[in-house]
């Protein structure tokens, strides 16, 4: 029960607060906006029911959408995070099948760096972050006018998101060991 609460509820709140209160205030340059919160979707248990996976992704995205600019009613891009996060949640089972390390994922394990190794996790995170950031920044810009600049934002922000997620995975397992 505690583990269930931790995985589904506490982490949900943790990533939203971390994203909204810390990362959204960190502005490296016009290009870089790390989005750490999708880590929550990455490490949900393998047997998470589909509706929880999609539903929590939607609420998570909406949470990020509503908070950062605080201007939902103001013609800002409400819905961008929700759309891109629901998409990666939907693609998660497919991606997990693609990069299946052996025949099957073992019972009682989680898709994280401790269970399946750092290389596997980087591949997995990179695919998911890539899809997420690509959709997110294109929805935000809503034009193909400055496609190179948008791609630049995808790549730079993606690298920072990946680094943050890997650092967090490192801290998490160093502490718990």
């Amino acid at each position: 029960m505690i583990d269930w609460l931790n995985r589904y509820i506490f982490r949900f709140l943790l990533v939203i607060f971390f994203q909204v209160l810390v990362l959204n205030n960190v502005q490296f340059s016009g290009y870089i906006n790390p989005y750490f919160y999708i880590w929550y979707i990455l490490v949900l248990p393998f047997d998470t029911p589909g509706w929880i996976l999609l539903g929590s992704a939607f609420l998570l995205g909406l949470g990020i959408d509503v908070f950062p600019q605080g201007l939902a009613g103001n013609g800002s891009s409400l819905g961008t995070h929700a759309a891109s996060t629901v998409l990666i949640a939907y693609l998660r089972p497919t991606v997990l099948r693609w990069i299946n390390p052996r025949d099957e994922y073992e019972q009682g394990t989680y898709p994280d760096s401790k269970n399946y190794g750092i290389i596997w996790f980087v591949t997995y995170a990179l695919i998911m972050i890539g899809i997420h950031h690509f959709v997110l920044f294109f929805l935000e810009d809503l034009s193909l006018r400055d496609i190179l600049r948008t791609l630049m934002r995808v790549i730079l922000s993606g690298v920072f998101s990946l680094l943050l997620i890997l650092m967090w995975e490192g801290i998490r397992f160093r502490v718990s060991r």
């Binding site: 939607f58 819905g79 961008t80 929700a82 759309a83 629901v86 998409l87 939907y90």
Partner: peptide
């Protein structure tokens, strides 16, 4: 059901945007 929920949520999110 998984696909249907996905489509509903995605459409809802995009509707918010557009």
């Amino acid at each position: 059901s998984f696909q249907i929920i996905f489509v509903i949520l995605e459409v809802f999110a995009l509707a918010l945007l557009f």
